[in-house]
Nucleic acid binder design. Sequence first.
DNA 1: GCTTTTATTGAACACTTGTTCAATAATAAT
DNA 2: ATTATTATTGAACAAGTGTTCAATAAAAGC
Lengths: 197, 197
Amino acid sequence: MARPITFDRTQVLQQAIQLFWLQGYSGTSVKNLVDATGLQPGSLYAAFGDKRGIFLAALDTYFNTMKLSLFGLLHNDKAPNERLTDFFNHLLQESSCDPDRKGCLLINTLSEIPVQDAEINSRLQTMFAEVELELKQILIECKNLGQLSEHQDPELLAKFLLSGIFGLRLFNKTQPDTASLKAIIDQLLSTIHLNQD
Amino acid sequence: MARPITFDRTQVLQQAIQLFWLQGYSGTSVKNLVDATGLQPGSLYAAFGDKRGIFLAALDTYFNTMKLSLFGLLHNDKAPNERLTDFFNHLLQESSCDPDRKGCLLINTLSEIPVQDAEINSRLQTMFAEVELELKQILIECKNLGQLSEHQDPELLAKFLLSGIFGLRLFNKTQPDTASLKAIIDQLLSTIHLNQD
DNA sequence: GCTTTTATTGAACACTTGTTCAATAATAAT
DNA sequence: ATTATTATTGAACAAGTGTTCAATAAAAGC
């Protein structure tokens, strides 16, 4: 009954993610998006509303794919402390393998977007809360298995680790040195008195 | 022999710092700077070259005043571990007291500017290296006094703390909760087995 | 008081930004 | 085939970007 859409929405979003990831939100122009996707401005605006709409959609897509990859690491039959170290080793590999040192789109966005921007920041807050919750649940498991000191609070410890992840990501921008990153992660995990690899 | 400059360079830089601090580099336009300083574009360009020049000058000024305030905290007759906790408590206060949550201009810049920008990033690297060195020296003092475990390396530990500071600053953007910040700092310092306040 | 030197002015520049919209094209239903 | 509906095109827009520069103003030396 009407002309069908010709482009693949998720593929367009992947290209958008790549741009925003590499250049940031304000560093990426609509022209950049037009060039990368091959879509004309009008089509982009029809599909996503405006530049911000494209970004928000890209952010959601990024988070969903991230969740999928994290889920495999955090939910399996390994011991909880092992899953935690796996998680951080994954982080380490991600950081050391990417020549562009793009880091994490969510954390980049947290850095770039002013606190005044409530719409974007509340989305980020929700996303980070999910990560924090995952960490907390693993830490609770650890505690139940006696792998965690009695006086440690999983709730606060999860925040500590989240903050640690933020730090790692930024540190990698100044000193992209795998050995240092590894040392920081070891120290981070040693805090909570778990064995690491 | 020639018309003298009428404006106060350091005062102009203070106003520039405030803008870049609050809005970031790309978020601050030359018009913003013109409005805030009262100087015309031509005067700004005569004094600083271009927008980037203004930013670099502001960055340097910011770092110098920061060093002055840090020096008082890190170099006095208190015990080294006490100076370290003082330093982090200062960080805590700074974060919890600023309603704009501007964070630290250096860390904001590290976040915002792409790694490809060698000029700005090499400056940042130098600045952070100075902070890292300060931390390391205090940790060495601690070790000499037996306040630090024998198997801990001050060099790596300094990196760990620097990364921790990065993390704190970002964490404060998502969860501006003083109690959480305090808990993170405690955990951070407990890692290195020092007494805190 | 004239000249030299330099600071200041502010309009103007070329360019990029995000966004819109009438024209056109492509499908499905009648 | 005609019509209705919607996707696509791409030129155009207004506003904002960083930057320049000839004109003007102010001081100091002769």
